[in-house]
Simulated scan of single mutants.
Amino acid sequence: MDFSYPAPVQSFRRELRAWLSEHLTDDVVAAGRLRGEDAEALALRRAWDATVADAGWGAVSWPREYGGRGASVLEQLAYAEEIARIRAPLPLNVIGLNNIGPAIMHFGTEEQKQRLLPRMVRADDIWCQGMSEPEAGSDLAALRTRAVRDGDHFVVNGQKIWTSLGHHADWCQLYVRTDPDARKHAGISCLIVDMTLPGIEARPLVTLNGATDFAEVFFHDVRVPADALLGPLHGGWGVATTTLSHERAGAARLYAALQLQLTDLVADLAAHSVDGRPVLEDSATLRRLGEIAVDVDYLELLCKRAISAALHGGDADGTGASEATGGGAASLAKSVWAETGQRMAEFAYDVLGERQATDRWSEQRLSSRSLTIAGGTTQITKGITAVRVLGLPRG
């Protein structure tokens, strides 16, 4: 695994670091930490995203013609590390930039690309992704939301749930069933839906930590123009599963975020005592802290190993199986990140306790329960790892 940064990447990092140092304010950092319905924080983050995009830092992995920098994999890695280091908030359209935007680049018409992508980068429009349903979470192919062709429109009926920012979104990348008689993977299509269309109702969901980052979205006879189809009719499964190379270094965010949390945790523990004795003098506390630190280091190694494989045209597990470089390695990293994040939050809460309602570790203890669910449950990701990395037979 070779991670020596060539001179152009070092120059890229210095330029980014200097720009962030000049433009990122404490108010923007604080807004990135807030959850829920804070309208002022939301507006501040949208303004920040526009500033970042106008300076050319909004979607560095995207091609230049769509507002990106065409950044190399190592430049993407440097970008992710610097953004985490300075605690800059993730873009409001992080799902759009990483998933929806690349899908539009790959499957969209030229008109869709020119109309939608520049506004996505600037957060002029907020995007959501309509995938999960009450009975189709991890098993996306079981979705039931229907779209029936009626002249120049599709008529959509159904429900989506756990839709990030669904109640704030201007647009939705919506997965619907257009052929109920086909096998379940083959009868799905993808639509780009204007969330202001009549018949759409978005209700915010309050999660365990009191946040309202998600919504359930209902579609009642919503008439979506037929030219809103993204990709081929009944080809939505291919749109959902296509992995493009624009964010191949995105895994860096996983270990960089946990490294920052670990730094914060050590600082909080260093200032904490129990019965007059510093907790960092307790051997059991030090052992648990050391185990978490090792897991964070392992996650960094795992992520960089996968990125190195992408750089050198190899695979992530040494077997020569090309699939391991993609979904298998990403699934393994996601599992380790989620479980380590939960252990860190549990450990912090056990030692530091519930000090006040706004304490970050109290909040993290609650929100961390979602880590092994969001973005693919641990059971699903471990199944992918078993098949694609370990080469075990499918169950």
Rank of each mutant, 00 (worst) to 15 (best):
S61W: 07
A53T: 13
P63C: 10
R46A: 08
P63D: 13
T51A: 12
T51E: 12
A59W: 09
A50Y: 00
G68H: 02
P63H: 12
P63G: 10
Y66E: 06
L44Y: 10
G67K: 00
D49H: 07
A53L: 08
P63M: 09
G58N: 14
W62Y: 15
S72A: 07
W57K: 08
S72M: 06
W62M: 14
R46I: 05
L44H: 10
R69G: 00
S61M: 12
G68Q: 11
R64S: 12
A71K: 06
V52E: 01
G70D: 04
E65G: 03
G68Y: 01
A43R: 15
Y66W: 10
A59R: 05
A71G: 13
A53G: 11
V60M: 06
W62N: 05
G67E: 09
G68R: 03
G56K: 03
V73R: 14
S72L: 05
A55S: 14
A47Q: 12
V52A: 02
R69C: 04
V60G: 00
V73K: 12
S61D: 08
W48D: 00
A50M: 05
A43H: 13
V52G: 00
P63I: 08
A55F: 02
R45C: 07
L42R: 13
V60W: 01
G58K: 06
S72K: 05
R69F: 04
A55Y: 00
A50V: 03
R69Q: 11
L44C: 15
W48P: 00
D54T: 14
L42M: 11
R46S: 01
D54W: 02
G56I: 03
V60F: 03
T51F: 00
A53E: 06
G68A: 15
A55D: 04
G56H: 07
S61I: 08
S72P: 02
L42I: 14
R64P: 01
R45F: 04
R64I: 11
V60K: 02
